[in-house]
Design a protein around this nucleic acid. Structure first.
Lengths: 179, 179
DNA sequence: AGTATTTTTTCATATTTATTCTACAAAACA
DNA sequence: TGTTTTGTAGAATAAATATGAAAAAATACT
């Protein structure tokens, strides 16, 4: 049976690659490091990035880096000062550091959680939204006023006074039970 | 005395260039044409773009094009299908022009757009909501956290920091591409 | 007008980036 | 187990892109 090897847009790794390889010696780590560098630094060329990688014990060739950047959908864009910058696509940018929830995200039907104002939006695999919304509705009446589910998106409306952290905790609990 | 020649991000021309030149024979027009092409087509290389330009009576060399793209801050970004695409920065993408969206509204499946707080609600012809929501989801990940569609209504949840105008622009782009 | 100044363009080329081809390693399979 | 498939990476190279410098065009100035 064919397994799907898809890159996880949150941790930038391949889902089935669960083993531990030598530290900093594999693609997964490298992609992570590249993301981190690009998120925090202005990098104008692959060569430059190559140097920064080798400083972090990631020795690769430009060919590999080119492929990595393609994989990560990193764009090269001109800046106002006449130089260039490699930028991560927006979904890689934030890396909302949500600890435990991230690991759950990586393997389940829940793809992401993001906030906007007082609202939370949960993205799921297509078709899963209603089922998961039902779980949330039922397990989190204290924190959640209600949910609205489409096909792959759930809008979570928290009660007044509920923080983002509360929502996050609630989801962790809800999905911890699912696995 | 030194004059400041700054590119106008709205019309893509240089401010002091107020005269009329021969049609399609100057930088201003060329930049405009480049913007139009990139807004409506997937272009993967400068050579490709060069051809499209010459079809439109803009004969230039790759060197000039490279500089034009730098000026317009066009980024080259990898696509999921393994190819590349030149993309305009977001402020060039739409024309922040209420009018355009209204005309589309008048003839298309999109009936209206209204805002409430940070949320936007799009009304569509019956049955169209999911299809249009899907478009919005896919074409506006930068501005939109998610959408939830009923039969004829779409709830659009903008990301934090996204203005109503951004949403309007985004919709213009999305629906301009549909025609 | 003619001349000076600034801007734009091209040519040639340097630089940068993507890809082909090869080799090998890990995982899946029989 | 051996075999096949899939994924990763490097070297070499092709392809794409950026840039210096000179020429041409446009504009400003007198």
């Amino acid at each position: 049976m064919k397994k799907y090897f898809g890159i996880c847009i949150f941790c930038c790794t391949f889902a089935p690659n669960l083993n531990n390889y030598a530290f900093m010696k594999n693609k997964r780590n490298r992609l992570q490091v590249i993301s981190e560098i690009l998120r925090s630094t202005v990098v104008g060329s692959q060569e430059e990035l190559l140097k920064m990688l080798s400083e972090r014990q990631c020795e690769v060739t430009q060919a590999t880096l080119s492929r990595d950047l393609k994989l990560l959908k990193v764009a090269k864009t001109p800046l106002s000062n006449g130089t260039y910058k490699y930028i991560l696509p927006s979904y890689n940018k934030p890396l909302p550091n949500q600890g435990a929830f991230n690991t759950l995200i990586a393997h389940g039907a829940v793809l992401s959680l993001e906030f906007s104002g007082q609202l939370a939006v949960v993205k799921t695999k297509p078709g899963y939204a209603s089922a998961i919304a039902w779980d949330i509705d039922n397990k989190a009446t204290e924190q959640v006023l209600g949910t609205i589910a489409g096909d792959d998106t759930i809008l979570v409306i928290p009660r007044e006074g509920i923080t983002r952290e509360d929502i996050l905790d609630m989801l962790n609990v809800t999905f911890a039970e699912k696995n």
